[in-house]
Design a protein around this nucleic acid. Structure first.
Length: 752
DNA sequence: TCATGTAGC
């Protein structure tokens, strides 16, 4: 971690340093300035404690509120508070020699603010979080602790919401993705004096890329301080990664405060983890002391299903044994649930049925979201079947999918820890101890190893990283994954043949979209349908808008049929959005048509954001009046972005073969096409009971040949039906052209 | 002939 030059902005504090008595803050004549005598990065714990207890808030120059006094009292008891001296010693320039195992809390950014004094030099301390909720809630908490107004001295910045005040905010919480976008446009990140990456152990794609960028940046910006906050297990790895030569980066450890959790394993492997989970939850409810239960399952459908089943069985139990079994309430939790329903996890457990009856219990059935993002107090029992849905990427066939996968040991430990937040708890693992020891991976593979990197590569190139293959990654992705990304960007003309960013690529990077979508959006004015492509892009960027409740599938399907455009699902999405607008964003219209009002509102929000970016780059917003022509133009524009996601019909069984990758796929049952066109483009490849392509639109091969000639160079195709079909199209076209080359026609053409 | 999502920009 870099040293630091004397700071000219602090000249006004210099004299105070000489006046020894002035360094004491509150008791000095210059008592209105609690930070008097503070020299950035030479601040001591003693000085900070005094400043914190000063009657005047150093950052607002206002007297501290009574509320602040109360909070401060509580904070004194935290381990971090007593470690302040240790922390500030490390914040000083020069080689630090501490070697300790590490675990950080979100209090550190405040100490950094006291140490860095960013407000005196017009700089900002940034602290990144993997999730939006965390950035918001930590910023709120810290603003209260520092006795300042949220959005002024302390703020946050997440997509769609910038709660900062330029010139005033000096401590900024933000999502890691947000900082990555900033790095794209200002690779030196000059606004920041310190960058703190929090929850680094989660190894999100953005955090990993930021670590690489920051390590590189540290070579050029000796004044920049970088702090990586992580759970214990990864500390050594990061220490080595950020070390200079053979000397690892300094480490600071903050002990956590949790209660012990007793862990139980099954004797035999469970063949059906959902069934075993339900059984375990009911067993806990019957036999264990009061305390709420957290059950981890993998997805929405599984969770809703489990909620129903547990409720049925629990109600039975209560009826059979009203004297020993209390009421049970099941609360589902997953990300696509509206926030209001997510809040239900904080409801108290149900009261006993009768005054002296057995107490009620709450069961939260959650995806991984409860593993890290949301903490629920009152949980005493955790049921961990050992699975989660994880993204996996296969660069060979260019397919990213979500698969139910065994979790890692680290993840299992995290889950167990959720039982010990309020008092000692129990964790029931629905797998054997032997499997835990020998089958589970130590750590979940970082996302960078499991993702399609097309977007990331474009961001990196835009951030000025030239050699992607030799870029210093914490964990380097498979070379094939990088090749696939470079190949896609080259075909989309975002990168030229030397791998340099083109003007188009530079513009594409400005959109928070996959490259296929941004390319399609940028070229759409050429087809006079940018308004519509903008809508389709927004609709493709939000969760599924179609609702299909288990008990009303028929009704939902019928409602969907009314909105379906037979030429393609992309056009159907456009139609849905337009109907939503025509119905004045009416939630009950959406509800009556089995559409998610929330997803539609999100699409509208995304659309507005993308529209602003289009306006900034003068991408024209245009439409064609005639519906037939409009639909044709849209389908053509789609080809400009998605020509690498094309499938060709093979035989009469409804099978398709993806172009070049030759994967046998079917049209997803949700597909609204009324025929089986010979050529289709698709938005995604999904692997459920079999490989499907989803969100599919009918296209013509002539368009593919015209808009993506190098990808559809027939000589690069494997022999097969697709190649023959393509060749037929080329021959037919050549035939026409030959016909057109007859002297009289040629003469006619020249006249036009 | 059957079926959609952890997180982020």
């Amino acid at each position: 971690m870099a040293g630091e030059k004397e700071n000219p902005y602090l000249a006004h504090l210099r004299p105070a340093e000489k006046r020894k008595s002035a360094a004491n803050g509150a008791s000095t004549p210059a008592g209105k300035e609690p930070l008097l005598g503070f020299i950035p990065r030479k601040v001591t714990g003693d000085q900070v404690r005094k400043a914190m207890e000063h009657e005047v808030n150093p950052f607002t120059k206002q007297p501290h509120t009574p509320q602040y006094r109360k909070v401060l009292e509580a904070r004194r008891k935290l381990p971090v508070f007593s470690q302040m001296d240790e922390f500030f010693k490390m914040a000083k320039p020069g080689p630090a020699r501490q070697r300790k195992r590490s675990l950080f809390t979100d209090r550190i950014p405040q100490f950094v603010a006291y140490s860095d004094l960013p407000h005196t030099k017009g700089k900002i301390v940034a602290c990144t979080q993997p999730r939006r909720v965390a950035a918001m809630s930590v910023a709120k908490r810290v603003s209260e602790e520092m006795d300042v107004e949220l959005g002024r001295q302390v703020g946050y910045s997440i997509r769609f919401e910038d709660m900062t005040e330029p010139g005033t905010t000096f401590l900024k919480y933000m999502t890691d993705g947000m900082l990555l976008r900033e790095a794209m446009n200002d690779p030196e990140l000059n606004r920041y004096s310190t960058i703190i990456l929090d929850e680094a152990h989660e190894r999100t794609l953005a955090t990993d890329i930021l670590m690489g960028i920051l390590k590189d940046l540290a070579k050029r910006r000796s004044d920049l301080k970088i702090i990586i906050m992580s759970a214990t297990l990864d500390a050594l790895k990061f220490q080595k990664y950020f070390g200079i030569r053979s000397s690892p980066a300094p480490l600071f450890k903050v002990p956590g405060r949790t209660h012990p959790v007793e862990v139980f394993y099954t004797q035999e492997p469970e063949p059906d983890y959902v069934e075993a989970a339900l059984r375990t939850v009911l067993m806990i409810h019957r036999a264990e002391d009061p305390g709420d239960i957290l059950l981890f399952l993998t997805g929405e459908e599984e969770i809703e299903d489990a909620c129903r089943k547990i409720k049925l069985e629990a109600d039975d139990l209560v009826n059979q044994e009203p004297d020993s079994v209390g009421p049970l309430v099941c609360i589902p939790l997953y990300s696509s649930l509206p926030p209001q329903q997510q809040q239900r996890i904080f409801d108290p457990p149900p009261p006993p049925k009768t005054a002296d009856g057995p107490p009620g219990r709450k069961v939260v059935i959650s995806t991984n979201i409860a593993e890290t993002s949301l903490t629920i107090d009152g949980i005493v029992y955790v049921v961990d079947p050992g699975f989660s849905k994880q993204k996996v990427y296969n660069p060979r066939i260019r397919v990213e999918s979500l698969l139910v996968t065994p979790i890692s040991k680290a993840s299992a430990q995290q889950r167990a820890g959720r039982a010990g937040r309020t008092r000692p708890g129990k964790c029931f693992r629905l797998y054997t101890e032997k499997d835990f020891m020998s089958e589970l991976e130590e750590q979940t593979h970082p996302e960078i190893l499991r993702s399609n990197l097309a977007n990331t590569v474009l961001e990196l190139v835009k951030a000025g990283i030239k050699d992607l293959v030799r870029f210093d990654y914490v964990d380097a992705p498979a070379p094939e994954t990088l090749m696939r990304a470079l190949e896609l960007l080259n075909y989309l003309a975002a990168l030229d043949d030397d791998g340099s960013l083109t003007a188009l690529g530079s513009m594409m990077a400005e959109f928070p979209l996959d490259p296929q979508l941004s390319k399609m959006l940028i070229v759409s004015p050429k087809f006079k349908c940018s308004n519509e492509i903008l809508t389709i892009t927004a609709m493709l960027s939000v969760p599924n808008v179609w609702l299909r409740p288990n008990n009303q599938r028929k009704e939902a399907d019928a409602a969907k049929a009314l909105l379906t455009v037979p030429d393609g699902d992309h056009l159907t999405l456009l139609n849905v959005y337009n109907n939503y607008i025509q119905n004045q964003y009416d939630k009950s219209w959406a509800w009556n048509n089995y559409l998610s009002a929330r997803a539609l509102a999100q699409a509208d929000n995304v659309r507005e954001q993308l529209k602003r970016t289009m306006e900034r780059y003068e991408v024209e917003l245009v439409s064609i009046g005639d519906e037939k022509k409009r639909h044709l133009a849209i389908r053509q524009a789609l080809c400009c972005g998605f020509f690498m996601q094309v499938a060709h019909k093979e035989g009469e069984k409804g099978n398709y073969l993806t172009v070049k990758d030759n994967q046998v796929v079917g049209l997803h049952p949700s597909c609204g096409l009324d025929t089986q066109p010979e050529w289709v483009i698709f938005n995604e490849f999904v692997l459920t009971t079999r490989p499907y392509i989803r969100t599919v639109t009918d296209v013509r091969p002539e368009w593919l040949l015209e808009y993506a000639p190098s990808y559809f160079d027939v000589t690069t195709f494997q022999d097969g039906e697709t190649k023959r079909a393509l060749q037929r199209v080329i021959n037919k076209k050549a035939g026409k052209n030959r016909g057109g080359d007859k002297p009289e026609s040629a003469a006619k053409r020249r006249k036009q």
